[in-house]
């Protein structure tokens, strides 16, 4: 089974003065084994949406299908633990949730919750830490004594150690330096291509969407505006211009140059291709 939302509503604080409809009749199917970006203005429902994927939030109405599970509104949903083994969710600023004395213990905490032996948990933790680029010299250090970017990696390792099939990340690169953000995105691509994880990333970075993701879901005010392949979204159709979000740098340049009469190649995939296309224009004619 895929991942799908069917007519899902979510209401925060129902029947209180703070009542607020965060998701409105969402219909959405997420492709497995792909990297899907979820973008949209602050407060558009992105975090609310992804927190439904491991039943951290339950729908007020509608149904969610996640792999072999069905989550239905107003029903007792049993054995959520098995779902949470399959869908790992990394929150915004996960580094604030580190708590163990050592990094290795912190990463072992997840697997230990799923009844494995200490030794197995340790193996899983070591593997996960290696994936996020933290070598054994970090194992016995306190997770509180490392930099923000490293803490983020430890927190993500904590989820990877559970070895979920679906990895959901809520703004995983916010606040990371450019190279840290780049290697984080490359890690997700690697997890997707080599380990066949389905990955959902909530992000505000349009360059990341363009450079690393397969599909993109655009949300606004609790609704899905569009759901497309990344290439179609950026290079065909007008949706990308309609959604009032900043264009990736590469598109900003190509648009600005085209507006001034440059005839550039249609699909420019990187900075080298853009330079070549500009050279063609300037050298010929």
């Amino acid at each position: 089974m895929p991942i799908a939302f069917e007519q899902v509503n979510y209401i925060y604080a129902p029947k209180t003065p703070f009542e607020y409809e965060a998701l409105k009749r969402i219909d959405l199917a997420i492709e497995l084994n792909k990297i899907t970006a979820i973008i949209g203005p602050t407060g558009s429902g992105k975090s609310t949406l992804v927190q439904h994927l491991n039943a951290l939030l339950l729908p007020s109405s509608g149904t969610i299908y996640v792999l072999d599970r069905e989550i239905v509104a107003n029903q007792k949903n049993k054995d959520l633990k098995s779902l949470r083994k399959k869908v790992g969710l990394v929150f915004q600023f996960p580094e604030y949730q580190l708590f163990e004395e050592t990094i290795i213990k912190d990463v072992m905490f997840g697997p230990l919750n799923f009844k494995v032996t200490d030794e197995e948990a340790r193996q899983k933790a070591m593997k996960a830490l290696a994936m996020v680029g933290l070598d054994p010299s970090y194992y016995e250090r306190s997770p509180l004594d490392i930099s923000g970017g490293q803490k983020r990696r430890v927190a993500i390792a904590g989820i990877l150690a559970i070895d979920p099939d679906v990895l959901v990340l809520d703004e995983p690169t916010a606040g990371l330096d450019p190279q840290g953000a780049k290697s984080m995105m490359e890690l997700f691509v690697e997890l997707n291509r080599t380990h066949h994880k389905t990955i959902l990333i909530v992000t505000h970075d349009m360059d990341h969407v363009l450079n690393y993701c397969d599909n993109v879901v655009v949300m606004k005010k609790g609704e899905i505006l569009t759901h497309q392949q990344v290439n179609d979204f950026f290079f065909k159709g007008e949706d990308v211009l309609d959604i009032e979000m900043a264009l990736p740098q590469r598109l900003k340049f190509t648009e600005a140059l085209r507006a001034k009469g440059f005839k550039l190649t249609d699909k420019i995939r990187n900075v080298q291709e853009l330079a070549l296309s500009i050279k063609k224009e300037i050298s010929h004619e």
Binding site: K252, K260, L276, K279
Partner: peptide
């Protein structure tokens, strides 16, 4: 982008600013 252009033999002066660079490339065109 300016560095890539330089490699292709197109030197650009205003490399840190998109608008300046676009204008400069237009002049070349």
């Amino acid at each position: 982008l300016a560095n890539e252009l330089k490699k292709l033999g197109i030197p650009v002066k205003q490399a840190w600013d998109m608008e300046g660079m676009v204008d400069e490339l237009c002049q070349l065109l």
